[in-house]
Design a protein around this nucleic acid. Sequence first.
DNA 1: TCAGTCGACGGGAACGATAACATCAGCCCC
DNA 2: GGGGCTGATGTTATCGTTCCCGTCGACTGA
Lengths: 329, 329
Amino acid sequence: MQDVARAVGVSPMTVSRAFRNDASVSDKTREAVRQAAEAMGYVFDSTASTLRSQRTGFVAVTIPSINNANFAETVRGLSEALKPQGLQILLGTTDYDIQNEEELIEQLLRRRPEAIVVTGGKHTERARRLLENAAIPVIETWDLPERPLGHVVGFSNAAAVGMTVDHLVAHGATRIAFIGGDADRDTRGTDRRLGFIAAMQRHGLDATRLIAAGAPPISMREGARAMARLLETLPDTQAVICVSDLSAFGALSECQRRGVAVPGQIAIAGFGDYEIAGTCVPALTTVNPFPHEIGRKAAEVIAAALASPGLPPQRAAISPGLIARDSTG
Amino acid sequence: MQDVARAVGVSPMTVSRAFRNDASVSDKTREAVRQAAEAMGYVFDSTASTLRSQRTGFVAVTIPSINNANFAETVRGLSEALKPQGLQILLGTTDYDIQNEEELIEQLLRRRPEAIVVTGGKHTERARRLLENAAIPVIETWDLPERPLGHVVGFSNAAAVGMTVDHLVAHGATRIAFIGGDADRDTRGTDRRLGFIAAMQRHGLDATRLIAAGAPPISMREGARAMARLLETLPDTQAVICVSDLSAFGALSECQRRGVAVPGQIAIAGFGDYEIAGTCVPALTTVNPFPHEIGRKAAEVIAAALASPGLPPQRAAISPGLIARDSTG
DNA sequence: TCAGTCGACGGGAACGATAACATCAGCCCC
DNA sequence: GGGGCTGATGTTATCGTTCCCGTCGACTGA
């Protein structure tokens, strides 16, 4: 910056101002600075700017996996809405593990983000402390935690699966199964299973047809294997709800391989409204949790919280939408 | 850090050393520092460390879209292999546009990454200049550029599609079509189309059955629409290669809706070995570009380049593997 | 004409760590 | 016993910006 200043014949302070568009610099000077910088190959150094101004321009985001269209959509929504505010996403993945999440959160906080968005509402005690001490807006997403850390933009995974159960029951199904992961690692998956059980009991139906398909997140392949197990052990099942569209599609593919008619012999529903759910034959009944909307709203909350630091914790509840398609008749 | 130092009764320098595991500090002191920091809720500030040490611990990565399982896998491979080296990924998306890429690269370079990984080998002139001036290792991936900027970890998209053409021709197909995006925006998609044309000509076959399915990246839905168009305009087509497995699955689903037998009436091949290709019925013939491997190797190159600054540009060619499945007989 | 205002720009200190060098006690070994 | 070495710690200056305050000339309006 010194060098650029010398080249233009101004002070470093003026160069600094020229690079930020807000400060009072004449257009002529600004243009001269830009050109000199471009010619010299100078690239502004945010690390120094960050230290002095105490503004990093980062928003930290944790998601379970980058290889998941739903979370990717949330990140995209966030990113799009944060960009005009001059904020950039610093992304990390937890691999569906709250221990990893704790470590990741610490890593991210060292970078001094201006806000942090986490997926889910279940964290280790130390992670909670870290987030509380960070003195920045915290947004929990994809869940409606009972004991929120700060702001919340999410929905009830249990209630969303309840909608699917209601839909199947309305179509006359009574022997309904649930395919999900087997551990408590994926808390959203667990919530969906619990939501299934609660809804079945509410209808006075048997809620014990639970197929555990391995360590979450369960893939198409695991969904297929789980369906094979279901067809063999509980062949009179009329409908099955899968923890995600991916496993639901795997289940559907297994039926196709075995010549089991869907929905004729067994109805299948998924979760997430992945693109595949609308494309495959028969198209899958699913629930749209509006992942992009979650990201967009989280960005709005961040903007509001940064604008007025005393803002009380916001709670934006998203209403997932049931999408009834051919796979459930 | 001052406060922690006071609490423990040492100098800030000792605290600094205690936080980095390499320096010579007694175990007792280190432990005392950790505990004091934990108790006081102190979180290490990388921004300051970064400025003085000129080490950010960032590796910048640009990908076209976060919502793509192939690129996500590359990022995962990178991330896993960089973590043990104490490097963290700073991710940005270009939305398949080299103008966006230019802007993104500038944004990322301001953060002073220690290396940068870009997807593809086509960039604006200014982006090339920025990368060359940055004086850090540059790794181009998912391509084998003729005029590389630095290191390369990739494969020839054209040759990969050539393998698929060879496979179909070996199975007796002569009237083969290609479904892809319509613009030059997605350079890898364009390379695949050109590779298709070249391979067809090499076999002395008609290479004009090209279906343009809209602005890249083309989705399942667009693949389905393109297949509808293909079946209507060129009904004697024996096989079709799609620019990705997603569009290939869309094409397959359209055949299923129309009762067109796959592979009996028309064979379908995709690209990318997405999970869906191995799950759907019939399973899709595809090409595995080993995206995770690309990420892993890129991380290796980064490690080598950071260890020995004079390292000549590396060129790691990945050999994509054809996976023949039921969809091509 | 002159006080007041405003826009454009400069000087010096500071953000919170760490590189580089200095110090110092304890130990080893001839 | 003293020189040399090693491990643990302290001191000073510094990374490249920006905050804070100040200066200076031009313009305005009575």
